[in-house]
């Protein structure tokens, strides 16, 4: 238990350092993007004939605050706000906190990303085992080729293809939005059915986009394990097929857990394309819109959440590894 705590605290320290670096970088970059909505509003009011003082008061009233002082003091204020859990006020939706906006967008990203990734992981890993065992046969070839093909197509192309096939050529599923507005939100049949209908294509896109990687990774991992001495030893001891299969699968899947955690983090980045294609109101679309609107606070907040997601995924991967691999567990104690 003690080792787990020590391990975790090390991870947390590194994670926080990483988050701080990303926060700082994104702060600097965002402030150097040309175009400033507050300044724009202020200048517009002056052009309309307001006095500078009145224009400043009106702008401050609209946004709830005014950026003041040097870049350095703004940076200190920003970090101070973050430490108190305050992500700031959105500029493009005046009067709303960034945290609130991100919170309502997050669920539209997390669920489809998790669903799509887990679906493709399970499918890719299972088929990868077959592709490795039957690698000299037609089935193995077909699986490996399907993997390479899908792995090679960019996510957004898959998204467009999926829309073309299932919404245009063969219109069975909706291609835009998270839910039909006809239904009252709540825990009722039609609303949930509509949710699932709208989520199907984005989830399918996430799944198809990563499936190829899983099948190829699992295939090569299984092929390596098959050559290990202990598999032949187990065979010569007369272990049953089922047990042999479990030995192979568990050893082969180990390296994939790290990739799984990393890809979960990275998929949030991929959400930018896929949510744009499906007009799905998640974090990716939020980021795109906030950049378009020069909404610093929202941009910074979204970057921060994506960073935290990747850091947390990494920590989870490492802890998970310690649980499933006794050698790592031992290494942590030594």
């Amino acid at each position: 238990m003690k080792t787990v705590v020590r391990r975790l605290s090390g991870h947390l320290a590194r994670g926080l350092a990483m988050i701080w670096v990303v926060t700082t970088l994104s702060f600097v970059i965002i402030r150097n993007i040309p175009g400033d909505p507050v300044r724009g509003q202020y200048e517009k009011l002056i052009e309309q004939g307001m006095s500078p003082d009145a224009a400043e008061r009106a702008t401050a009233a609209l946004y709830g605050f005014l950026p003041k002082g040097s870049l350095w003091s703004q940076y200190v204020d920003y970090l101070n706000g973050l430490l108190h859990g305050n992500l700031g006020q959105s500029l493009s939706t005046p009067g709303t906190g960034v945290a609130t906006i991100i919170g309502s967008a997050a669920k539209w990203t997390i669920l489809p990303v998790l669903g799509g990734t887990l679906l493709s992981f399970l499918l890719g890993v299972t088929l990868g085992v077959y592709a490795a065992i039957k690698r000299s046969g037609k089935l193995g070839d077909a699986l490996a080729i399907s993997g390479s093909l899908l792995h090679g197509i960019p996510q957004y192309v898959i998204g467009l293809l999926v829309v073309a096939v299932f919404s245009t050529l063969w219109p069975i599923l909706p291609a835009g939005g998270p839910v039909d507005i006809d239904f009252a939100p709540g825990f009722n049949g039609p609303y949930i059915a509509s949710l699932i209908q709208h989520a199907t294509l984005p989830v399918l896109t996430y799944a198809l986009a990563s499936y190829g990687g899983w099948i190829l990774a699992m295939k090569s991992s299984v092929a390596t394990v098959l050559g290990d001495d202990f598999i032949m030893a187990a065979e010569l001891r007369g272990m049953s097929r089922g047990i042999l299969f479990r030995y192979i699968a568990r050893n082969a899947i180990l390296p994939l857990f790290t990739i799984l955690a990393l890809s979960l983090g990275l998929l949030f980045g991929g959400a930018i394309f896929i949510e744009s294609i499906f007009n799905y109101p998640g974090l990716g679309l939020l980021l795109v819109n906030s950049i378009g609107a020069r909404d610093y606070a929202l941009m910074g907040g979204t970057f921060l959440v994506l960073t935290v997601a990747i850091v947390v995924a990494n920590i989870a991967a490492d802890l998970l590894y310690a649980v499933i691999d006794p050698r790592v567990r031992k290494g942590a104690e030594a």
């Binding site: 202990f230 030893a233 050698r327």
Partner: peptide
């Protein structure tokens, strides 16, 4: 054949070989 292996004929591998599943 599988049942003969282990039950009737025991096989011991070279010492340097890793003849055990590392995860169990």
């Amino acid at each position: 054949l599988r049942r003969a292996r282990g039950r009737q004929v025991g096989y011991v591998f070279q010492a340097a070989q890793n003849s055990l599943n590392p995860l169990k």
